[in-house]
Design a binder for these strands. Structure first.
Length: 566
RNA sequence: GGACCCGUAGUUCAACGGAUAGAAUAACAGGUUUCGGCCCUGUUGAUCGAGGUUCGAAUCCUCGCGGGUUCACCA
């Protein structure tokens, strides 16, 4: 449709001696703020210099050049500086609905990213304590962005870098060694490990020597001390097993797991290569460094004087390794924004080293998640635990469900889990990525308003209409369209552009907001337009089906699973 | 102190540089009723400040103000 409009405009502009590409016109086209203003709008402001006239006047002149509207249009009007196109909505609706029903899960799918192979790295936890609220945002984003990339034709490799070594791990280990008495986990195993981390910090307050003991333990680990390694493996397995449970509940899985313990020593060669090339500088007392004066950043250490690696060293190595293993064209790192500085430098260095995909590095950096009670404090142990939060939200949902309908225990269990996951994911994804945000469990499960349950509810509503219909007649005919129907059709038609926009900006919140608007309009439709038994039944059924399909596609991109019944 | 990010109704969030800054909640008013709880309708209410760029700025630039994060061998 936009193509067609662009063609018309191009032609009339040519008569005015203005040369412009069709692509450009398509980019300029807007959607007017209200239905009365038509379906597509062409703003004339940018022509002011060429025409040397007021934009309003330009619009009128151009409109005159167009002449009678072609068949696909009902009307073409000017409103101030805009030329507004009214499409023939019956034809438009017919085409759109048929297209959705034919393409089903593929409606909205694009091939913009075809040929790209992208690694999305998330959530990359530390193995000394369980996942927390921040990880939930991380996982929601990582999974959603992956799905959006795939929907745009990219091949995605989901990778998880486990930070399974270092002083923080040794702290949990030490506490277990000293106070754990060889106990085995009686609770979820990552929580078991985390409890010893908290215990360590508690004991540390009274006994400062523990800090040194933990460092000794780290040294022993690095020397490969057998007993230490056995303990380490055991506790790491507990932690990782626990994480896997949570991942599964969350509906995510990885194509590739990396372990810091396996790569942390390996960056040295690359750094030395860089020294040879003159990118880095070797200093006697300071190890290897890089000066970043030009970039207005401080000098950065890449190797210690004794030749061992620092944090960034292994990231440099891992980038090379990834590129070799998968021949990536693009790499996305999902982390909290406290790592902005780190990734800034990492990307600079990778570019200097000329890593294959170094022009396509992206740090998907998100803001902090807080609770209504206040800010999370990271080390004290009052961090909000991911599993606990899921449970809390789930029990809130259960309560809500119980008040609505009697369900078997099994059904209640499965529904409330799915709704809880939808609540959490939706709430975390609807917010712009960069912003700090407040996660309010109670708000998140509200069945009304801008929430996950509201989406699922709308979906289920559509489902229940369809269930009540027996006729299998797929034909539909449009006699006439009312305002609400037009609104919903227009919204449906916008899905592909929203997908593209979300893809270009790595921004799931656009999809979330779209889902909400769509669901809202559908509920309006639900109240205003009876489906079953109406004169428009065949068409309205097709419309309900289309809505259900597009909402499903949309939620799917957010990693949210739909439910036939709420 | 330097760098980066953020700043929009009381609160939580929206708004490719475009037409009248939208929702959700809360508050207020009315309706509905077994009910001060559920539901429905309506009303009030916001771009941190000062300059600049532009036909047009919440959006871009500069300087302030406020908050967060970060800054050489922790991840």
């Amino acid at each position: 449709m936009k193509e067609l409009i662009a063609e018309i405009l191009q032609k009339s502009l040519k008569e005015k001696n203005v040369k412009i590409e069709k692509e450009e016109i398509i980019n300029l086209l807007e959607t007017p703020p209200s239905l009365e203003m038509g379906d597509y709008a062409f703003p004339c402001f940018f022509l002011v210099n060429e025409f040397k006239e007021e934009p309003d006047e330009i619009a009128i002149q151009l409109r005159a050049k167009i002449g009678n509207p072609p068949p696909a249009f009902e009307d073409i009007q000017t409103v101030g500086p805009y030329i507004n196109f009214f499409v023939d909505r019956k034809i438009f609706a017919e085409n759109l609905v048929s297209q959705i029903l034919k393409q089903k899960n593929n409606f909205g799918k694009l091939s913009t990213g075809k040929g790209n192979k992208t690694m999305v790295e998330f959530p990359s936890p530390n193995t000394n304590k369980p996942l927390h609220l921040g990880h939930l945002r991380n996982m929601s984003l990582g999974e959603s962005v992956s799905r959006i990339l795939e929907f745009n034709g990219e091949k995605v490799i989901r990778a998880n870098l486990n930070n399974d070594r270092g002083i923080h791990i040794c702290k949990s280990m030490l506490a277990y060694q000293k106070y754990g008495r060889k106990k085995k986990p009686a609770i979820k195993s990552d929580h078991f490990v985390g409890d010893y981390y908290v215990l360590f910090n508690k004991k540390l307050k009274k006994n400062k020597k523990l800090e040194k003991e933990a460092h000794d333990l780290l040294r022993k680990w690095e020397e490969g001390d057998k007993e230490t390694r056995v303990l380490w493996s055991k506790m790491n397995k507990w932690a990782l097993d626990g994480f896997n449970e949570t991942y599964k509940k969350f509906g995510i899985a990885f194509d590739k797991e990396y372990y810091e313990s396996k790569i942390y020593k390996k960056g040295r060669e690359i750094i030395m290569e860089g020294v040879k090339k003159g990118i880095f500088k070797k200093e006697k007392k300071a190890g290897v460094t890089i000066k970043l004066n030009k970039e207005k950043l401080k000098k950065k250490f890449l190797l210690r004087p004794d030749g061992t690696s620092v944090y960034i060293t292994q990231d440099i190595y891992l980038a090379k390794l990834k590129s070799k293993q998968f021949k990536l064209t693009k790499s996305i790192y999902v982390t909290g924004n406290e790592q902005d500085y780190h990734f800034n430098i990492l990307f600079l260095i990778l570019k200097k080293l000329g890593v294959d995909f170094s022009n396509n590095l992206y740090h998907l950096s998100y803001g902090m998640v807080n609770l209504p009670e206040g800010k999370m404090k990271s080390r004290e142990g009052n961090v909000v635990d991911a599993d606990d939060l899921i449970e809390k939200v789930k029990s809130l949902v259960e309560k809500e469900l119980k008040s609505r309908e009697k369900l078997s225990k099994k059904e209640l269990e499965s529904r409330s889990l799915k709704i809880a996951m939808a609540s959490i994911k939706y709430f975390l994804l609807k917010v712009g990525v960069r912003r700090d945000m407040v996660f309010n469990p109670k708000d998140s499960i509200n069945f009304e308003g801008d929430t996950g349950p509201y989406m699922l509810y709308s979906y289920a509503r559509a489902g229940s209409i369809l269930r009540k219909i027996k006729s299998k007649n797929k034909q539909f005919k449009i006699e006439q369209l009312n305002q609400t129907e037009i609104k919903i059709i227009k919204k449906l038609s916008q899905f592909p552009e929203v997908v593209l926009n979300a893809y270009n900006n790595f921004n799931p919140s656009l999809i979330a907001n779209y889902s909400y608007q769509l669901a809202q309009i559908f509920n309006e439709f639900y109240h205003a337009c009876p489906v079953i038994g109406s004169e428009q039944e065949s068409f309205r059924l097709a419309l309900v089906k289309s809505f259900k399909q597009v909402l499903e596609n949309s939620l799917n991109l957010l990693g949210i699973e739909t439910l036939e019944k709420m």
